[in-house]
């Protein structure tokens, strides 16, 4: 066996995984998106751009996703950062593990069940009822974009906390002392040392959450109540209810392209921010 043959053999499992998990489904979607819906639903082979021409019918889903996914990501990041900072920098090491576990605990139950709790909290007999008692009437929370945003932040917070926590925990605490020693006040130290050195964690967290949010359907379904829906909900509808696979494939493929473009641009920007450093990497 030559060296290059051996290399091929070693790469084979990864290549197979790549083909089965990524290339194959994507190809199917790509091919389907040029087809037509059969009389009883499903897919009939064809070559037409009709499905893509029909995309504006789902404009609202795209609009909601493209607004709430980035807003949710940023909101989750803004809440996760102080939390991760407190855990990594301020907490006594002997409490760290316990507190970290508390961050993970919500992951042990399904998002479905946890979202139901929010349906109650935001619903008529929850927060609005409380507000009414203090004289603020007519507040509607459930089935609004706000409710979906709350659900997103709540659901994805742990995923954001972890990478940020890791990058802050890894940060050499003597760098903070060195900064103070050189005359920087705490806020300056945070802005010029802590923050730049935790960017990799923030970048990773944002990317993870953003990608998952682009395909989210459960939270909008539960907390948006059919009024605030994502592309994910449109796909559920097209594939499972109306069984229009061709149009569903066109929608799905468009979403994938949008995601690829966004993530590529994002990686470029982060790479530029971190240019020339080998002590950090994105993901």
């Amino acid at each position: 066996m030559t060296r290059s043959e051996r290399n091929w053999l070693l790469v084979a499992p990864a290549a197979a995984w790549f083909v089965v998990m990524l290339v194959l489904p994507l190809s199917v979607i790509f091919v389907f998106s040029f087809g037509e819906r059969g009389p009883a639903g499903g897919y009939v082979p064809a070559f037409t751009l009709e499905q893509y021409a029909n995309l504006p019918a789902r404009f609202t889903a795209f609009k909601n996703t493209m607004i709430l996914a980035p807003v949710g990501t940023i909101a989750a990041m803004l809440i996760a950062y102080p939390l991760a900072y407190q855990l990594a920098v301020r907490t006594d090491p002997k409490w760290k593990t316990i507190l970290l576990v508390l961050v993970i605990v919500p992951f042990w139950t399904s998002i479905l069940i946890r979202s139901y709790a929010w349906i109650f909290i935001l619903g008529g007999r929850g927060l609005p009822a409380l507000l009414e008692m203090v004289g603020i009437e007519g507040v509607r929370l459930i089935y609004t974009p706000f409710a979906v945003l709350i659900g997103i932040i709540y659901g994805y917070l742990p995923l954001m906390v972890f990478p940020i926590y890791v990058s802050l925990d890894r940060l050499d605490k003597r760098l903070l002392e060195a900064s103070a020693d050189l005359g920087a006040k705490p806020l300056r130290t945070f802005l010029t040392v802590t923050l730049p050195l935790s960017i990799p964690g923030v970048a990773t967290g944002c990317m993870l959450v953003f990608i998952l949010l682009m395909g989210e359907f459960l939270i909008p379904a539960l907390l948006g109540g059919g009024k605030v829906f994502f592309v994910g909900n449109a796909l559920v509808d097209l594939f499972l209810q109306s069984r229009n696979w061709a149009f569903g494939s066109a929608v799905a493929f468009t979403l994938i392209v949008i995601m690829l473009v966004t993530v590529t641009v994002y990686m470029r920007v982060i790479a530029r921010l971190q240019s020339g450093r080998d002590d950090v990497s994105i993901m």
Binding site: D172, L175, V193, P196
Partner: peptide
């Protein structure tokens, strides 16, 4: 500092 604590960024 003993291990210099230079800012890597």
């Amino acid at each position: 500092f003993q291990s210099y604590a230079l800012f890597p960024h």
